[in-house]
Design a binder for these strands. Structure first.
Length: 864
RNA sequence: GCCCGGGUGGCGGAAUCGGUAGACGCAGUGGACUCAAAAUCCACCGCUAGCAAUAGCGUGCCGGUUCGAGUCCGGCCCCGGGCACCA
């Protein structure tokens, strides 16, 4: 064994060895190497978008996955850890325009570079399963599945709003709309309705909601976010007649409310700008038409809708209160969403904050009808009273509680045929059409006679041309060779759909395809049912809702198509916190921002400056590492300087996985120092000659204490990795053990055998985190041993036994000393010993004890 | 704006079920080794007062429950993630 720790030599050597031996190949059932007695463990990290280089978030994500994969391998599982590329997406098009290259070439070059980086980090990946979603052998099955769903009616077409840039004449992603303007053109963005395909995710809303209750391995916060997102709410649909006389079959304005108890407090109703009533009223009011146009400005993003100034305009139309027949004005309001509920809301300013603000702004009446169950309202209201309570000024319903009134009002409305109880969902159907080039083509042919016809299976895949010239707008929309085709039904001339699919579609089923990436005859085969569900899924918390909900949805779609047999795709979920970093930018002349990488910026006395020109830059706040804000930190420099093990160790030691982490490389030295110390310790030990690990001779108290710490550490580290998934404390425990080992001097055989036992176990415990160095150290300690196939350490229960324990002694909750008692001491003995101890006597100052609290194994607190 | 998290020394963090706040590491200070430096090793290291023993304060802020709160409850402030076309 070399006296020096040289990661630059041992790491590539280990990686080459693993690759040659296919050490991390995960055998499928009945393949060579498959062992039917081993339980399977499918460990999956979210695949990366090939943006160019890895960033620290990737290192964090994949190291967590690798630690869990390697740990379970040591525990005797048949472990699958695959890797692939979420290869379609917007950044490829942007890069293509900026550098005048084709998105495909750019993407493949990035994949090659990033694959090299992943291999350099030494992850135990089965690389033969690698897939890229932009390859036809992957997306052809997505297209095939699309046609199946289309035939089942689970996909349909409707009009929906997009961000329209009127200067570039192109659709913009929400990310490309900044302060209501197109990022390239700077033009004011408009909402425009275009036809789009939708996945009927709402048909699965109930199951997506209830299924969360059967996912104990998911973080509660993710389940809460998904529940809120799905947003099942029970309420009442109320019909406001458009005519004064209530007659059957008359026109009504439908609204949905969860607060039917406030019905007598309605002082106006508000409809969305796209609502038919608004259109009708605008026909003879140019002023209103102008206002409706104004509402159509701005982006379609909900965050923009919710933060913009609430505006409205009276349509002049009236509806009539279903109970009192009172006329109620109809407003058009920019905050009412056409896509949610009925595109109309009843407004109760007294009991809704938004309505209250709106009513104050437009001097509309505020009519309180709910008061606290055990008190009175302070009138006039200074703010909306939004809690449930008791009704007043509400006709026959006055005096009832809110809950009671909601039931009763729904019943009476139903009898009047003016409404009924209803369940609504916040979840909307999933629009998947994108007017972009670099995505999976939607397999539909538009025929003037037959309408929309799905592409037959034998004509799949619809291949996306990879060699294109790209500027603003999708090249396939200008490419007759792509879109001109014959109708599969009637054979007449027809046109192919030129929209592509949302990239979330590819990432909704890739986890299943890893089981059988080579399958040419179908989407999935029996191997998927062996490996699925994923036992451990690891990825960023930013995917808590969309990606994870879509993947759950897709799994159910695949189940109902008979492709998989389980209900949920991911049994256990670990949501890693974001790696965040400061963002820096400079304003360009036209108001746009040029984002600068933190690596190119340094802190001067005057503030941040660009290293290259020494001129100041603006700090834009701390955000998740991303391509668009250019604040990703490339791990390559770290790997080059210290090696993969140090990068992995430091990343795992920096913070627990679920916590967000502001990037700083302060402390990398310490991680590296620890590995050098570990190397040196093993080297010195083995240089003294072979010794076998301790096996049961009589020990003095020092060695006994040390062995107890060793086996406590094994227990703790096992629990930290397996249950707590907290690696920083697992590393810290090993560091403490190393510190204790360093204090253990003595070169007799017994001490050396205990040291051998400790070092073997430390090396095995650290192996999932720093596999390269541990591979060499294990070989040095146990000549002939191999890390691949090594077993996880076990706890020697005998080493943990102790006769006495130390309790904390408190007087009035203040720490006053320690108390050594027998492990099996009774409460009475402990109390007596505590009261008699000199520390207690001193601080009790002769006063009698009011109470003595004994917490077994922990402390005694004497209250005086 | 709405939904979900987080806030502990100079810094990253620990305290797992309400029981010793600050493990482990970084930075810093002092020392050993060295011609010197690097590396390594040893010691100290929350704040205030004190020579010290020790005392008081201390987990974003305000209040509450409890013998006991970083941990539980109520209210606020700040930071991060998501908001359906970034992935």
């Amino acid at each position: 064994m070399d006296a020096q720790y040289r990661p630059e030599i041992i790491e590539p050597e280990a990686q080459q060895h693993w690759e040659e031996k296919q050490a991390y190949r995960a055998p499928d059932p009945n393949e060579p190497g498959w062992d039917s007695t081993k339980p399977k463990y499918y460990c999956l990290s979210m695949f990366p978008y090939p943006s160019g280089k890895l960033h620290m978030g990737h290192v964090r994500n994949y190291t967590i996955g690798d630690v869990l994969a390697r740990y379970h391998r040591m525990k005797g599982y048949n472990v699958l850890q695959p890797m692939g590329w979420d290869a379609f997406g917007l950044p490829a098009e942007n890069a293509a325009i900026a550098n005048n290259v084709a998105p495909a070439g750019w993407t493949y070059a990035n994949i090659d570079y990033m694959r090299g980086q992943l291999k350099r980090l030494g992850f135990a990946i089965d690389w033969r399963r690698e897939l890229a979603t932009c390859k036809p052998d992957y997306y052809r099955w997505e297209q095939w599945f699309f046609t199946k769903l289309y035939e089942k009616g689970l996909i349909y077409k409707k009009m929906a709003a997009v961000n329209w840039d009127p200067v570039d004449c192109t659709v913009l992603a929400n990310e490309q709309v900044i302060d209501g303007r197109g990022w390239r053109s700077g033009a004011l963005v408009e909402k425009r309705d275009i036809p789009m395909y939708f996945f009927r995710i709402t048909a699965y809303a109930e199951e997506l909601l209830s299924g969360l209750d059967n996912l104990p391995g998911w973080p509660e916060r993710v389940k809460t976010m998904q529940r809120n997102w799905i947003g099942k709410s029970f309420g009442v649909e109320i019909h406001f007649p458009l005519n004064e006389r209530h007659e059957d079959g008359q026109d009504v304005l439908k609204v949905f409310t969860t607060r039917a108890d406030t019905l007598f407090g309605v002082t106006y109703v508000a409809v969305a700008a796209e609502h038919p009533l608004a259109t009708q009223a605008a026909a003879n009011s140019p002023e209103l038409a102008a206002f409706i146009d104004e509402c159509k400005q701005g982006s379609v993003a909900e965050a923009d809708m919710a933060t913009m100034e609430k505006k409205g305009m009276d349509t002049g139309l009236k509806v009539y209160h279903p109970f009192t027949n009172e006329p109620i004005p109809v407003f058009v309001a920019n905050y009412v969403l056409m896509g949610y509920g009925e595109g109309a809301v009843m407004a109760v300013p007294a009991h809704d904050e938004r309505d209250f603000a709106f009513a104050e702004k437009y001097a509309l009446p505020i009519r309180p009808v709910i008061k606290p169950t055990d008190g009175e309202l302070e009138l006039p209201l200074k703010a909306a009273y939004v809690d449930l309570g008791r009704l007043f000024d509400s006709g026959d319903f006055s005096g009832r509680t809110s809950d009671d009134a909601i039931e009763k009002i729904a019943l009476v409305l139903k009898n009047l045929k003016l409404g009924e109880k209803r369940t609504t969902w916040r979840l909307r159907d999933w629009g998947i059409s994108r007017q972009r080039y670099w995505g999976c083509p939607i397999p539909i042919i538009h025929c003037p006679t037959c309408g929309d016809v799905p592409v037959p299976e034998d004509q799949l895949p619809v291949v996306l041309p990879e060699v294109v010239k790209i500027d603003i707008g999708s090249p396939i929309k200008k490419m007759p060779s792509f879109y001109e085709c014959a109708c599969p039904k009637c054979g007449g001339p027809a046109e192919r759909e030129t929209d592509t699919m949302d990239t979330f579609v590819e990432s909704s089923w890739y986890y299943a395809r890893y089981a059988c990436p080579d399958l040419g005859a179908g989407m999935l085969d029996e191997r998927a049912n062996y490996w699925l569900p994923v036992d451990q899924y690891i990825g960023g918390i930013e995917h808590a809702i969309l990606h994870l909900l879509y993947a759950r949805f897709f799994h159910k779609l695949m189940r109902d198509e008979g492709l998989v047999s389980t209900n949920e795709p991911f049994t256990n979920l670990l949501t890693q916190g974001m790696v965040i970093a400061e963002t820096y930018y400079r304003e360009l002349g036209d108001g746009r921002k040029l984002w600068l990488n933190p690596a190119d910026v340094e802190q001067a006395a005057s503030g941040p400056i660009l290293k290259s020109d020494g001129q100041p830059v603006m700090a834009g706040g701390v955000e998740k590492m991303s391509k668009s804000k250019n604040n990703g930190v490339d791990p390559q420099a770290l790997i080059d300087q210290y090696g993969a093990d140090t990068a992995r160790l430091f990343m795992m030691f920096a913070a627990p996985p679920e916590q967000s982490l502001e990037w700083s490389d302060a402390g990398v030295e310490g991680a590296h120092r620890f590995l050098r110390r570990l190397w040196k310790t093993v080297h010195e030990h083995v240089e003294r000659g072979d010794v076998s690990a301790y096996s049961g001779a009589e020990l003095d108290s020092t060695l006994q204490d040390f062995r107890r710490q060793l086996h406590q550490t094994i227990a703790k580290v096992t629990d930290d990795i397996e249950r707590r998934k907290q690696f920083n404390t697992a590393i810290a425990a090993n560091m403490e053990l190393m510190n204790a080992l360093a204090r253990l001097d003595g070169t007799d055989v017994l001490t050396r055998s205990v040291r051998q036992e400790a070092l073997e176990n430390i090396v095995l415990m650290l192996a999932p985190i720093v596999p390269h160095i541990c591979r060499i150290l294990l070989k040095a300690l146990r000549p002939g041993a191999c890390l691949v196939g090594a077993a996880w350490p076990t706890v020697d229960a005998c080493a943990l036994v102790r006769n006495e324990i130390e309790l904390v002694l408190q007087v009035n909750c203040k720490l006053r000393g320690q108390l050594l008692v027998a492990t099996d001491a009774t409460r009475e003995t402990i109390e007596k010993a505590a009261l008699e101890s000199p520390e207690a006597q001193k601080h009790m100052e002769g006063k009698p004890a009011k109470k003595v609290v004994v917490v077994p194994g922990r402390l005694v607190n004497i209250v005086v």
